[in-house]
Write a protein that binds this DNA or RNA. Structure first.
Lengths: 334, 334
DNA sequence: TACAAATATACAAACGTTTGTATTAATTGC
DNA sequence: GCAATTAATACAAACGTTTGTATATTTGTA
């Protein structure tokens, strides 16, 4: 017998496949003693459930799909890694797609998920997604939706996000406490709630400190090293002595600009980045950064999904506190 | 009609499901004109193939499984990222598991793959896997096996590896040409072909240059920053003035040790790492490193798989040349 | 002892596709 | 124009599981 089925087990034992099925799925409709016998026999025969048949019959798979812009971004790969560990442990299979930051690929990915009848979708949307309509359109009602990091609060389901306002607030406060007087920000794309929040925290900190909010030193769309560099040059020109950057790569660009301007980091210029990318701790001077806790985010997202499919909890938003990692680049001005 | 099936299409058109199926799968047994009509109707009705039914009937899924020690390692996430792009484009779904560097989880992952009836498995084995027996045992004959980076040459199937001998040879030659006189190596775990190859290239370079091979400055098992640091301390003690490191993290540890010893990098001490981790280009002095081209590796692995399932090519080993990235840490001794 | 209730198992249909074989329609050769 | 061939489509079974309903068995109660 190449690969035994429940029918084979049933025949072997002189019983019916339905009983075998119920025994193996843990239905209460079968006597404990027969269940034990069946399980023993199944193991003896080297039985393995045919997932496809099972999925077909039930109409869904014990699978969750994860969609991210790019798997090879440190943040995302960390989220995926910890989510996979939790989901795998719970017997779920993880399928992965990348949106490559485009709406087109994101929709394609959603279709793939639907085609594979996943029980849930964990998604951090592409930069091209301006709202969640395409998500609603492509995910059936009964599929659990878990958004993380980049989320649309208008969508139903579970959301796992950083407390970005609080994080950027603390980062900015830290710069203020270290004596910096004119603090700008490389803000990222403000159309995303994520970045909008980080700006909010920055503004809040300045307001509390009684400092001016100057739109001229709030640089939108500065995410890359290159764009960060250019914006930072302008910031220096406009008299800034510190920058809170909504990303580590733009912060790296800020380093470049500040060095080029002949200023010292820290001291003459303070910088705090966001994401705590690995390299931040290896540079010199080492860069202060706001850690997003992607590991925690992935685990929490996975756990929330599991609770949801088991019907234990309903839709909710989980906030993962950010962690301000203070290193050299933001220390006290002499 | 909630979700149309091929039977619905058939009824609607007054034909039989088998014709619809053949039309949609591109069988030559259906007239072109009817095929076109069927496709039109299918689109009109919003038909989507039920993957599970299809998989069940055919006995396999258009899915490939990727197993890596950890998704969140830069190297692996890059491989996965480019492999997913290629496979997704070809209509394959990617499922992912982590072995967490343990044999136990790797076997579990293999079982998951088998349960999901994947068409192929791409794997880079865990450090605990000393041979490929568990792979053979858990993967059916008809599943295409693609090993990458960490491979067992004894296993059948496709293998995608770096030309590690050549890479480390060039790295070592580069150190020699820059005037370093006593070059050691932080060699990694030599039980893995991967690391054994890197040692070979190192030895070859020294031999060609007529330099002594000194086992006392070949440090096995130095992969982490911490272990690299300790080994590097010994290397300095034993008179080395350069190290070729089989990993970037051990190279980072070497930096620590050299700095602690009060020597200058480069000049008094030369270092070349392996992997070209992102941080190597951001340190100061910037670290020279051997790039593994994970993007190319993932893409080549995926392409080889696609060729194999289409029956175009047979088992083979693909070598991805490494790229020596010369930065500051290995430059000329004054 | 008999009968209702509960428990355990059997029966059979269904999930939607694919595919070997049978049938019908169209084409070819002579 | 008719048989022989080929092309196109129809029929029906199968993939292995799950699950509603029906039947058989056991238990409890009057």
């Amino acid at each position: 017998m190449i690969k035994p089925t429940i029918t084979d087990i049933a025949n072997e034992m002189g019983i019916t496949p339905s009983t075998v099925s119920r025994a193996l799925t843990g239905s209460p409709r079968v006597k404990e003693s027969t269940r034990e016998a069946i399980i023993r026999k199944a193991e003896e025969m080297g039985y393995e459930r045919n997932v496809m048949a099972s999925n077909l019959r039930r109409g869904f798979a014990k699978t969750v799909g994860i969609i991210v812009p790019r798997i090879n971004r440190q943040f995302f790969s960390n989220v995926i890694s910890s989510a996979e560990s939790v989901l795998g442990e719970a017997g779920y299979t993880v399928i992965i797609c990348q949106s490559h930051e485009t709406l087109e690929d994101e929709v394609k990915a959603l279709k793939t998920m639907r085609a594979n009848q996943v029980a849930g979708v964990m998604i951090s949307h592409s930069i091209q997604s301006v709202n969640g309509d395409h998500i609603l359109e492509n995910i059936p009602e009964d599929v659990e939706l878990v958004q993380f990091d980049r989320v649309f609060s208008s969508l139903p389901g579970i959301k796992v996000v950083n407390d970005g306002v609080k994080g950027s607030y603390e980062a900015t406060i830290s710069l203020i406490e270290n004596g910096y007087k004119k603090i700008g920000t490389l803000a990222g794309y403000l159309g995303a709630e994520l970045f909008a929040d980080r700006k909010k925290g920055y503004v809040k900190a300045l307001e509390e400190a009684g400092m001016d909010i100057d739109e001229d030193i709030i640089f939108e769309d500065s995410i890359l090293r290159e764009t960060g560099y250019r914006s930072a040059l302008k910031a220096i020109e406009r008299g800034c002595d510190a920058l809170y950057c909504a990303g580590d790569f733009s912060a790296l660009g800020a380093f470049d600009a500040v060095r080029e301007a002949g200023l010292e980091v820290p001291g003459q210029f303070g910088i705090i980045g966001t994401a705590n990318e690995h390299f931040t701790g290896l540079m010199s001077p080492r860069m202060s950064s706001l850690e997003q806790r992607p590991d925690k985010m992935g685990a929490e997202a996975a756990l929330a999904f599991l609770e949801a499919v088991e019907g234990k909890k309903e839709d909710r938003t989980i906030e993962i506190p950010m962690e301000l990692i203070i290193r050299q680049s933001s220390s006290r001005k002499q």
